[in-house]
Amino acid sequence: MINRVIALVAGMLFGMGMVISQMVDPAKVIGFLNITGNWDPSLALVMGGALMVFAPAYRFLIKPRNKAISGEALKVPTNKQIDAPLVFGAALFGIGWGAAGICPGPALTALVSGQKEIIFFIAAMALGQVVVLIWQRARLARLQQA
């Protein structure tokens, strides 16, 4: 039960962060990405504020542990390879982000407003993830056969 409350509370803080920082406003995001126009550097401070809290906490509270407080494993990615899917995927994400000014966090936060634009965006995003998942599975199956 307490573990579930923790997941919910962490989510609430994240949603509040999205609204207070105005990441949830596509116009604000585009203002940050539009460096040759009327540039608004605010979102650099969103990332800066997040890193100011996360980086030292990770280094001193989390990294020394071998398990989470719940006893669950610390699921920190171990892959170190800079490969084509990483770079190509990040580039595709960048195109979508620049086109609409929406990334996954703001989209799922703003879903609560029920706007149809957000519903379209999230449905398409979920579809895109599933398509890649199916492709990755098919590729793995082919590799295992070979």
Binding site: A91, F93, G96, W97, A100, C103, F121, A124, G128
Partner: peptide, 8 residues
Amino acid sequence: AGLLVGIG
């Protein structure tokens, strides 16, 4: 944009 964000 959603598709690109999902795939990417």
